[in-house]
């Protein structure tokens, strides 16, 4: 039996923006995380909150896993109060990875990596991976305003492009506006962010551009059992006698979280 439940200890839990926190967890060696995967944290010993909360991995090393989260609800508020040395249990890492979609033919491809809001978390880890692999990379982050930008990790490096809705940092507008200028049919776009951003991506890129997005959905178990976090995905050969429905529900937690944008029914 593979063990996919782990205990970890808080190394630090820093505020890095308006309501945004960067937490590092010390984990036992040998837990390998791929870009785009998430961990499912048990936030409290009490039954409030009852369920685990999934977080994309922002960074990972041999003995640590980093997450970046926004304290917006009860669970994330409780997390923001965690201090160094406190224990947190998690399941995972689970989910597929952006890099599952990278083929040997993409050696010279320009990868445009887009993070919107806290979606920047998985974008960071992917960007790090691509940089290390020697791939061509353009990294973009969009947020509502300056205080909500995540300025950590890869986003502190040169050449990163930012957008804010109010123009308080980077260009005024959306991350997809930057994508529009950068994308060509030969580039590959990886993105994680709010649903409207993912929808806008479709229009921002030339037809035929491959776009892969990491989705966020309300999860129950986070291990593929409860089928709560589903998203409609187009069915091949729809309309034929044997295939009744034009779409089927796939589980974001284990069939994703990364899907090809073209396959999704948004």
């Amino acid at each position: 039996m593979k063990r996919l439940t782990h205990d970890s200890q808080v190394v630090f839990n820093r505020k890095i923006g308006r309501g945004i926190f960067h937490m590092r967890l010390a984990v036992k060696a040998g837990i390998r995380v791929k870009p785009g995967q998430f961990i499912n944290l048990l936030v409290s010993d009490s039954y409030d909150p009852l369920l685990r909360r999934p977080f994309s991995v922002f960074d990972a090393s041999e003995k640590s896993i980093d997450i970046v989260y926004s304290a917006i609800g009860r669970a994330t508020f409780l997390m923001s109060r965690k201090i160094k040395g406190e224990s947190l249990n998690f399941t995972g890492p689970r989910g597929n990875s952006y890099i599952d979609f990278i083929t040997p033919g993409m050696k010279k491809t320009l990868f445009i990596v887009v993070g919107g809001g806290t979606g920047a978390a998985s974008a960071n880890y992917l960007a790090k991976w691509l940089r290390r692999a020697g791939m061509r990379l353009k990294l973009i982050q969009g947020a509502a305003s300056k205080g909500l930008l995540i300025k950590a990790g890869e986003f502190c490096k040169k050449g990163v492009l930012f957008s804010t809705d109010d123009g308080s940092a980077g260009i005024k507008g959306f991350a997809t506006d930057i994508v529009k200028k950068a994308a060509s049919v030969d580039s590959v776009v990886f993105a994680c962010g709010p649903k409207p951003m993912l929808g806008a991506l479709k229009k921002a890129v030339p037809k035929g551009t491959r776009v892969f997005v990491s989705l966020e959905e309300y999860m129950g178990c986070g291990i593929g059992a409860c089928v709560s976090c589903v998203t409609p995905v187009k069915v091949k050969n729809a309309g034929t006698k044997r295939v009744k429905n034009s779409f089927e529900y796939k589980r974001v937690c284990v069939d994703g979280t990364v899907f090809e944008l073209d396959e999704l029914v948004l």
Binding site: L50, E217, Y218, V227, S228, C229, V230, T231, Y249
Partner: peptide, 14 residues
């Protein structure tokens, strides 16, 4: 197929 999302929500101790 099942229902459209959202399919789940946490409530007080449940």
């Amino acid at each position: 197929l099942g229902n459209r999302p959202q399919r789940i929500v946490e409530t007080a101790s449940g």
